[in-house]
């Protein structure tokens, strides 16, 4: 081992660093399970904030769910919202501080279930903020119950025989739904299971924050992720399961890329 250490000593020098922990992340150890996608998404957001040099001007809205402690891990200003109400709180922050970068960080139980009304109307109003939506198909924090985004046939704590569409309804593609709204400028679906996917997601989140700078409307980034504890699989197996089962239903890619609808293009009966 000694001679290896000697050879490595020449490489391990501060000037040779190509990748290290982002300075926007705090030193606190994340409470997430081993292999959780939340950690990667936190890291991407921290790196984007660092690259754009907006650490002092960014306000995040933390949700309820596993990522409720996001405010402990990214070293920016945060607000904690009631369950599902992050877009409503983000609206208020954005209107009181129009020059700040506002983003919400929500899971599928928060954004697509209890907070559907807030989400839809915030996007419909074209609030100038970024919404990061982490879709892992179940309620991770409370023990892996069925969420609106759970796949057909997926076994969860509350659907032990698999989700049955006749009984439980259809999986909700909320990202496609939000892309129809005139207030959305950028709607995309990404994932973080491979290094290439991480790079693409980083590009998407960077673009979303750039849109906020240009005041173009709501940017919505869905990240299809895993919950290996809730799915009862290893991190590697859950990545493969996601690739095989979720990607055909939740296809990766941009759904809308443009700007919000101009008010002059719509009929105005007051004129």
């Amino acid at each position: 081992m000694a001679e290896i250490t000697e050879a490595l000593k020449n490489i391990i020098k501060p000037e040779n660093i190509v990748s290290q922990k982002s300075s926007v992340l705090t030193n606190q150890t994340m409470h997430y399970c081993p292999g959780c996608s939340h950690g990667v998404i936190h890291k991407i957001i921290a790196e984007v904030i660092n690259e754009m040099e907006i650490q002092e001007d960014t306000i995040g809205v933390a949700p309820v769910g596993c990522s409720v402690f996001a405010y402990n891990y990214i070293d920016i200003d945060w607000q904690e919202a009631a369950h599902g109400r992050a877009p409503a709180l983000g609206t208020a922050i954005n209107r009181l501080n129009p020059d700040k970068f506002v983003f919400t960080y929500q899971g599928d139980g928060d954004l697509a279930a209890i907070g559907t009304a807030e989400t839809l109307h915030a996007v419909n109003r074209g609030e100038n903020m970024v919404m990061v939506f982490v879709n892992n198909g179940i309620y991770g924090m409370t023990g892996g119950q069925m969420a609106p985004t759970t796949m057909q046939g997926q076994v969860t704590a509350t659907t032990p025989y698999g989700r049955n569409i006749d009984l439980h309804g259809y999986p909700l593609k909320i990202t496609e739904m939000l892309a129809q709204l005139p207030g959305a400028c950028y709607v995309t679906r990404q994932s973080v299971e491979t290094p290439a996917a991480v790079r693409k997601t980083k590009k998407a989140i960077r673009k979303a924050f750039e849109n906020t700078k240009k005041k173009q409307g709501t940017s919505f980034v869905e990240v299809v992720s895993t919950c290996n504890s809730g799915w009862k699989m290893s991190p590697e197996a859950s990545n493969n399961w996601m690739r095989d089962n979720m990607f055909p239903f939740y296809p990766i890619g941009d759904i809308k890329d443009g700007e919000k609808v101009n008010a002059n293009d719509l009929p105005n009966v007051g004129k």
Partner: peptide, 16 residues
Amino acid sequence: NCSLVCPDSCITVYRV
């Protein structure tokens, strides 16, 4: 690649 996918940002990579 390892540092990109690390959820806990505990990997530092050096290159010469």
